[in-house]
Design a protein around this nucleic acid. Structure first.
Lengths: 217, 217, 217, 217
DNA sequence: CATGAATGAGGATTCATTCAT
DNA sequence: CATGAATGAATCCTCATTCAT
């Protein structure tokens, strides 16, 4: 990940990389993963070749953008875990995650499998899983949410909420708050246990892949 | 809709069309709208040209698959509205919709704008909106859900739930039941009003298009 | 060409063939040789398969239409040769040919090589060449045109005139009369001999093909 | 037109573009507008993608080839207007135009409407119209041609002559001289006025389009 | 015999990626 | 090292022709 043993980047290369990542983040967010490398390069004001100098495939670039978001979220989650009360910390974390992602078309696609095999994305997801579990466990321990909710449930619910609100984002940019509130109410509901086991940990993605889709068979 | 005056289809054409629609439904569900016509044709065991004989563009084919799903849902919803108690009707309708769509990758993309301009899809959505509103209004009138939930909210929540559960579908095909329960609990919660206005009716999609995205600006 | 030894056509087949030829003539005239067999069949009110029952390739159909025009012209030319004065006969023949063809987009394309290899077209052209030469020779013998104009020249000039006027046909349908008059004046001009030899007889088309194009080489 | 502020093209791009334009000109000339991009690319010895890098549609490529010819002709005409006597200037201009175009199958198709809507072609045609009118007016003013011949007539006649001679080009490449002479004699003929009004100025093409074809109705 | 359903080769175009400048 | 020119595989779609009904 880091380049501590390699020669340090030239300053213009550093600048190019920054421009590229910003442009890519914006482009992926607006248009989804189908946006072309040409357009990203143009938005960054650099040449197409330079994109491939920094990231040897398009998927690497996407993974870099996605994992930067993941890292940011992890940081936010860790801070909240240290500074906020259990219930507040979890709710604020979910709000932050959703607000960050609701504007991001590519993130929805990633949630559905795009680039999920990339090491950086996988690592980011693992870190995110850890911090989400921490926050969830604290909230659960303090009775702020029902007993049968796991960190993995929370991760999926965050993803679901932004996807719920995403279609109407242009006209109702705050709609996600409505559904976050509703879902959080559900997370606190004092009703019989939720049906089925909680979501399995992330490694199930790999198993899923190996197993083949039950739809096809 | 019906073609009572038209000559009936030849049996081989009927068979081809059936194979095609099944193959297309499966392919779109598994791989999303990006799946190629060639692959669909191959899976159906027919020639590429035959696909275009039945649907003159790829988008028409997608719209046919999507609107068939929409029609099925509308039928289910209408039956439930006649036969089931208000709260049960709504819950069962949501369950049916989610179960039908959770397996469908293309449906997620449609929820995010793909093919939404196709007349068949638009009509299907309108019909779906009507029946969802009916069921929601009944449930609300009977006090089965909180007062500030609209049919449009329900449509978005259904879409969100299947998208929540979709990533883990291969290993945990029943996971959506968990989140449907949780959301339905949230829909019944006796807490202060949900923040913000409910989702605007569907026509806001068009307005959104005209208004341009606030993200880009 | 004729089917004297074969079984006579069924009356519905005769009717289909007539409808087909009329529709094809109109379609080729309006849209050129690129018009699709589907459209021709539809205009004729018959099935696509029936087109191929009557003409086993599209080129055969085109050749039939073209050679019907050629035959008609030959008939007109032969009558004029019998009934009109030499100069009038030639001028009227040219007028008839141009008027017939000026509306025909496909004919321009045939003039430039399309279907020229088809036996029927070749035969029609041969017959047309004969009658044109007859009329030209008579006119020349009577001093109605300059001595160095041949029948082949006249054939090419007819073709050129309708192509001159063709682009403006929609707005000025009578424009060809203007250029026929002008060319006919040129054919009578009392000036030094025209440069170069007259056009060679039609067989040169074949030689041309074998020789390859001087442009490419 | 010129790109004085733009970065100069890279030498390899210049070479590709030159190869492409030459190959395209030859291919369109020989085979007409129906020639495939694949074949053009192959003849140019470049990849298919490179064609689209230089011209974003096939029609743009065709327009580039056609308008290069138009520009060349305009230049020739303007020089002749400055340097030659009125009658000679017109005759030489017609000769140059015909010689340039007689080899060009695509040009015939353009004369019949192909690509006429492309801005470059339209502009080229307008410029060609202007210079032809200038030369024609001078010749008429000096009594070198009859009074009722307009520039528009001359443009159509040039087009007609090369189309007259085009079919026999491979075996008789100089045949057009024969018909140019004949037509020019006709343009000088001292006979009663030519029938009908002269050809309308070029804008009639547009009117024609709007009016619909009298053939179809 | 007529029909139109099925076919698949072929065409224009896009775009991630490679490589000469 | 940055650039953008070149590449060609892959995509959607058309249409002459074949063949089952």
């Amino acid at each position: 990940m880091t380049h501590s043993v390699t020669k340090p980047m030239r300053s213009d290369a550093v600048r190019s990389r920054k421009l590229l990542l910003e442009a890519a983040a914006a482009a992926f967010a607006e248009q989804g993963v189908e946006v072309s490398i040409s357009e990203i390069a143009e938005r960054a004001g650099i040449g197409k070749g330079t994109v491939f100098r920094h990231f040897s495939t398009k998927e690497d670039l996407l993974a870099a953008v996605v994992s930067a978001n993941q890292t940011l979220l992890v940081t936010i989650g860790e801070r909240l875990a240290r500074t906020a009360a259990p219930a507040d910390a979890l709710l604020e974390f979910m709000a932050a995650a959703i607000e960050l992602q609701v504007r991001d078309r590519a993130f929805c696609q990633v949630a559905h499998g795009e680039a999920r095999d990339h090491p950086d994305v996988r690592n980011g997801l693992a870190a995110l899983t850890v911090v989400t579990a921490t926050l969830t466990d604290r909230a659960r321990a303090h009775g702020a949410i029902r007993q049968d909710i796991t960190g993995q449930d929370v991760m999926l619910l965050m993803s679901g909420i932004f996807q719920t609100a995403s279609p109407l984002l242009p006209t109702q940019p705050q709609l996600w708050r409505r559904y976050l509130r509703l879902v959080f109410d559900g997370m606190q509901a004092d009703t019989p246990a939720l049906p089925g086991p909680p979501a399995a940990p992330q490694s199930s993605w790999q198993q899923a892949e190996l197993a083949g889709s039950p739809i096809t068979g």
